[in-house]
Design a protein around this nucleic acid. Structure first.
Lengths: 214, 214
DNA sequence: ACAAAAGTGTTTTTGTTACACCCATGT
DNA sequence: ACATGGGTGTAACAAAAACACTTTTGT
């Protein structure tokens, strides 16, 4: 039997968060630049578990929403070896960000999706696909709640939608739609920040769960 | 360096067709029962190409619509080895069916999705997921055209939708919706089959292409 | 003449979009 | 008092759903 040609099966994760009204991705350092967190799947390791593990090891993120995106397997996607990547995306709630804004050398760093540096391999395409998928899911699921802290205002939730979609939304229509979904509830508390009327704080009715609409 | 634990990366394909008003799947023979067409990915082979190759080798189907579905990698999904499967589904137009209705031994065979035999590994789950994805896509794409022969009547197209969704549709609303999509055109020919008024024959405006709606 | 499927519009209902003002707080 | 974002309802419009009869063929 001939020696089996090496085939590397990896996971790569696109960790999204909203920071300063921008959709950003958490990147890991690579020999010469940036790449998505990820790495080879261990024997006996579940795919989702591997994605979570690399996210933890390389970025410190844990307990985030994670969803399989697509599997990339073009033979020439990695010039060094045959590498097949099962790509995931993760949603990091604001407030649980483990990494400083200004990353030191060899620390992972957040970068806006609209100003990505050149990434290793096809990781740029992976980010683009993940962004499209996330934007599409806003229309038919409650997935945006996975990007929110435990308590949040309706304006903050609206800003998250607007940031991902890249377009402004009508305030009254947005609130009507979200409240009709019955996915959030008032906490009774108020956020008094800034020189203006305090805002009601809401929380997700079913945190960690993404509901589909209709 | 220790010997690398064997990891089998395979593709499995769910080939769908509408036969006799039922949604059916083309299965391959397995040592003890049935399984989906598929097999290990060769070094240097593209994932999509591998799926097409196995479809051809094991069922004779070629030139069909093919789409990646999901990657299944639970460590215990195959008791014999660590196997990760990139699953696809394929849509086979009526009229290009290469296999007889009553399969001989060791020939692939069509089986209704509502009456599947026990399948190898998690192939039953794969079929179920593919069916759900196909049904969902009817609502926002022209994917059903990939199941139609070159020329077809509106009633036939409606029957395909109804079969996949498992529910009847209103004839006038269906026709209005499909024609508004501007995805099919009249051929000028008529289908005169049976003791009733002949039906106009249509064809896809962009065969092989799946358009998204809205 | 009858059976069988093809073909065709309108009304009702539902959901979506557009739109402007007052409120509560900090400075 | 003023600046800032928070909070609220209604009318117009568009899309989806409900609904029944006439036409053309084969037998």
């Amino acid at each position: 039997m001939p020696p089996r040609a090496p085939l590397a099966l990896t996971t790569d994760v696109v960790p999204f968060a909203i920071r300063a009204e921008r959709l950003e991705v958490l990147l890991a350092r690579h020999s010469t630049g940036w790449r998505l967190p990820g790495g080879p799947i261990e024997p006996g390791e579940d795919l989702d578990a591997a994605a979570r593990r690399y996210l933890m090891e390389q970025t410190g993120l844990r307990d985030v929403y994670l969803e399989q995106l697509y599997t990339f397997g073009q033979p020439d996607r990695d010039p060094g070896q045959r590498a097949v990547a099962v790509a995931y995306y993760a949603l990091v709630p604001a407030g649980s960000l483990p990494v400083d804004a200004a990353p030191a050398v060899d620390r992972p760093g957040w970068v806006g999706v609209d100003a990505l540096p050149a990434l290793a391999l096809d990781h740029g395409e992976i980010v683009a696909l993940a962004h499209r998928r996330l934007a599409a899911k806003l229309a038919y699921s409650t997935i945006a709640l996975q990007l929110m802290p435990e308590r949040f205002t309706l304006s903050e939730l609206q800003a998250v939608h607007e940031t991902i979609l890249g377009e402004p939304l009508d305030k009254r229509n947005f609130r009507k739609r979200i409240l009709a979904l019955d996915c959030i509830e008032m906490t009774g508390e108020m956020a008094r920040r800034g020189g203006h009327r305090p805002a009601r704080l809401y929380r997700a009715k079913r945190p960690g769960q993404v509901d589909f609409i209709k």
